[in-house]
Design a protein around this nucleic acid. Structure first.
Length: 192
DNA sequence: AGGAAGATCTACT
DNA sequence: GTAGATCTTCCTA
């Protein structure tokens, strides 16, 4: 039996809830015939106009418009020459996204290493810019749906059990009072 | 034309 | 652990 694909409804909740619930889920990336896969081990939630760390803070622009659109699509943008992969997540008529910060790679490691040559397997996907490089994700995939099995990127459910923890978001200049970074406790692929 | 950015790498103490 | 260079993308002017 195929693992259960996360539906549109999964993403139609506050980014904070979705960020926490995405931990332990399986992220699949189809590259032609090849399937790359990893477990999501670290995420961050971003809100809209009231969140100074959010790409949406300064209002809707060409590059950030995905954050206003339908939950369950990819939102990809560049920072310091690194692509950031986010999933759009918010309640209806709101704004928000979840940044995928780190994965534990499970399938297609040799292809990932070709995309991003590193000595140590731990360095393959333990940061937001690293995992997009390893998985071959860039702006071309901005706005694609990830709630169909035909998608180039999709996320499936697992029944893994683990402990989670949270902290303030990494690298942001002005963070909110809430802790919006979530990670799997003790996982070796968490970025720090 | 200039600047800022949710990062990463390298080279250190 | 921390500091500095990086040299893309998209913003504002």
């Amino acid at each position: 039996m195929l693992p259960k694909l996360l539906s549109r409804e999964f993403y139609e909740r506050s980014p904070e809830i979705v960020a926490e619930r995405l931990l332990g889920k399986r992220l699949g990336r189809k590259l032609g015939e090849t399937l790359l896969e990893g477990i999501i081990v670290e995420t961050e939630a971003y809100f809209g106009l009231n969140d100074p760390a959010s790409r949406a803070y300064h209002g809707r622009k060409n590059y950030n418009s995905a954050m206003w659109e339908q939950p369950g699509i990819a939102f990809i943008y560049n920072v310091h020459n690194n692509w950031m992969f986010n999933v759009v997540a918010h309640r209806s008529n709101q704004i928000g996204a979840v940044l995928i910060r780190a994965l534990e790679p499970t399938k297609g490691l040799s292809v990932m290493k070709r995309n991003r040559p590193v000595r140590n397997t731990f360095d393959l996907t333990n940061g937001p810019g690293k995992l997009t490089k390893s998985l071959g994700i860039d702006k071309k995939l901005n706005g694609i749906s990830i709630v169909s099995r035909e998608s180039e990127i999709f996320i499936t459910d697992t029944n893994a059990k683990f402990e989670t923890s949270s902290s303030h978001r990494i690298g942001v200049r002005k963070d909110l009072a809430k802790k919006l970074r979530f990670f799997i406790k003790g996982n070796k692929y968490v970025s720090r």
